[in-house]
Design a protein around this nucleic acid. Structure first.
Lengths: 190, 190
DNA sequence: GTAACTTACTTCAAATTTTGAAGTAAAATT
DNA sequence: AATTTTACTTCAAAATTTGAAGTAAGTTAC
């Protein structure tokens, strides 16, 4: 049964970017081993998930470094992500929840910190006084602008040519698909 | 003023499940003069990062659900990821660190919980008695097998045809590239 | 051989992030 | 007018992550 599942994944040729098959334990042993030019790697659901977890960790620490460089002490990576999620539009807490799949109390907590730090403004909506409208202050926009500015270097490294752009786009859309599949599964079962 | 630039010429191709351009405030206009046969979305660094964060969150809650279904109470999603990272080989704590880009004390903490729960065995290496060798117990292997079994359904949904396979492969490799770029940047600066 | 240094990991305490239960107030429904 | 639902907040607890300090084993330089 396990054997069968391992073959439900994607077959990948891995000479690209020289990553190491040993990074991926969910591969049948007979396929690694000898130093042949072509390895076939089976990418499963879990490998993708592990990759995503690692990449997420890396990004968070990068963001922390950037924040430190900017001398920002009252905003952590998680809060910075919230600021970036807000972007330059005014939106309600509910919309923000949808954007990041956060849990309500979590966002509420971050928004409080960000409001205390002067990064966002909260105004009760005229239409619906239950609904808080959120928007970046100038300080918040400045921070986002600085982060984006620092991010430009990464964009240039990551998107060198058309091929890179295509791959980034495909990665993005594929992740979006994962988001939907995993999200729907969580709510309605697969 | 910098970020006003970021909203030029955004065209979103919505072939996948109709996601909304408004979800993604950070699309750049940094396209060079090459000919693109069709409209292209230029995905930035931060958009990818936000997507990855969301997907990661979704996966963690899915994993939590699966663990609950299996009646497992002493293993959370983070620990389950560690078990999956170990896979079916025996390795040292250091190797495990590399696999997940964890921080040492973090893994140590998880390994303690997993050892207490009987999911892993720890043996001091003969060669080097500082080095702890880690391996799944039968209980640990059983849990991984159950998780993989449940995961089979997702693999089938995600990888329906060759196109899906190709896209998953590209996503995986692109994430690996992100991992390298972000990781190296964190250590050596970009 | 041994003193100093490095590696491999653990421990602990603190910070950060996430979760869930309970609450408030406004809007919508009955 | 009473009830229910929505939109959010608060608070306390749990889970996760981090960093500083510690231990013990291996390595290197004298």
């Amino acid at each position: 049964m396990i054997q069968k599942l391992l073959h439900e994944g994607v077959e990948v040729e891995t000479s690209i970017d020289g990553y190491d098959a040993a990074d991926f334990p969910e591969i049948t042993a007979e396929k690694q081993g000898h130093r042949h030019p072509v390895h076939t790697v089976v990418v499963t659901h879990f490998e993708l998930a592990r990759m995503i977890e690692r990449v997420n960790r890396r990004f968070a620490s990068l963001l922390r470094t950037e924040l430190t460089k900017l001398g920002i002490e009252d905003v952590g990576p998680a809060q910075a992500m919230v600021l970036l999620a807000i972007g330059d539009v005014e939106l309600s807490v509910g919309e923000l929840l949808d954007r990041g799949h956060y849990i309500g109390s979590n966002i509420s907590y971050y928004l409080k910190q960000l409001a205390d730090g002067g990064y966002i403004d909260r105004v009760a909506s005229q239409r619906d006084k239950r609904s808080a409208r959120i928007r970046l202050t100038d300080k918040g926009e400045q921070l986002c602008a600085n982060l984006r500015n620092a991010g430009g270097a990464y964009n240039r490294v990551l998107a060198r040519d058309d091929d890179d752009l295509r791959n980034l786009e495909i990665a993005f859309q594929t992740l979006h698909r994962l988001e939907l599949v995993w999200g729907n599964a969580a709510r309605y079962g697969i």
